[in-house]
């Protein structure tokens, strides 16, 4: 479904991504982890072109998405993106956050969009908060609305950029539960996260990144029990996950 081919990016002369080669299959759940500054968020953001790349190509279903002339709005409207800071629209209610794009993009009529939004808020457990403004919601609730907003695009692919990093610890569980549900439903999902328990349980594969490179790619059981690369071993020690 997604293919990275020798993807590189620099900030000035600092390399952010170095010749990334990777393929992610339809329905796969991939967790990207690594120390901060390793390029994991940057890599995720190249998939819907929030970040440009300077070399290589990224294909989604065979289409080179960074090619000049690609309709970037159309591309993004088919990819759900969830931000670390939620980025809900504070002047709109939870429901309106979920109806804005489908209506403005002409996907759904207003009444269809409202119906869909109610169903999605139900799915993330927030049907009763449909008319609340973001400022009236807890962090965990805001992030769940943000997930519902992304799902309103009916995307075949969802990207999560550290979805629980800005949350108080007691709210992490409710958000992960929603993401876990999506994974079970067979959605293609890429998640940058430090939640190693979640990765172990939900991911089909773990990618470990450092200094702009993917140093290790393995199923979670293998990655957590027998990390091959010294940097990955060190990382697992640093986040205090006991090595067997």
């Amino acid at each position: 479904m997604i293919r990275f081919e020798r993807v590189s990016k620099w900030y000035g002369s600092d390399p952010a991504l170095v010749e990334i080669d990777e393929t992610i299959a339809q329905g796969e759940v991939v967790v990207i982890c690594g120390p901060s500054g390793s390029g994991k968020s940057t890599l995720l953001r190249t998939v819907n072109r929030l970040e440009p790349i300077q070399a290589g190509r990224i294909e989604i279903d065979g289409r080179d998405i960074h090619a000049p002339g690609t309709n970037v709005n159309e591309l993004r409207s088919r990819i759900g993106f969830v931000f670390q800071q939620f980025n809900l629209f504070p002047h709109l209610t939870a429901l309106q956050n979920c109806t804005l794009a489908p209506v403005q993009l002409g996907r759904l009529s207003r009444s269809q969009a409202i119906e869909q939004a109610r169903a999605l808020l139900e799915r993330v457990g927030l049907a009763h908060k449909a008319d609340a403004y973001p400022a009236e919601l807890s962090g965990g609730q805001q992030q769940r609305v943000a997930i519902a907003r992304a799902l309103a695009q009916q995307p075949p692919l969802m990207l999560f950029d550290e979805p629980t990093s800005a949350l108080d610890p007691e709210m992490v569980g409710e958000v992960l539960a929603v993401i876990r549900g999506l994974a079970k439903d067979g959605m293609t999902l890429i998640c940058v996260t430090h939640e190693m328990g979640f990765a172990r349980e939900v991911a089909d594969r773990v990618l470990f990144m450092d200094a702009g490179r993917i140093l290790e790619r393995a199923p979670p059981a293998e990655f957590f029990q027998r990390p091959q690369h010294p940097r990955a071993q060190q990382f697992l020690v640093d986040i205090r996950l006991p090595l067997p």
């Binding site: 819907n48 591309l75 800071q85 980025n87 629209f89 993009l105 695009q153």
Partner: peptide, 13 residues
């Protein structure tokens, strides 16, 4: 930047 990014990420122009 977050508000513009979130809106663009939804596919809005």
């Amino acid at each position: 930047r977050g508000q513009m990014e979130a809106a663009r990420a939804l596919g809005l122009s």
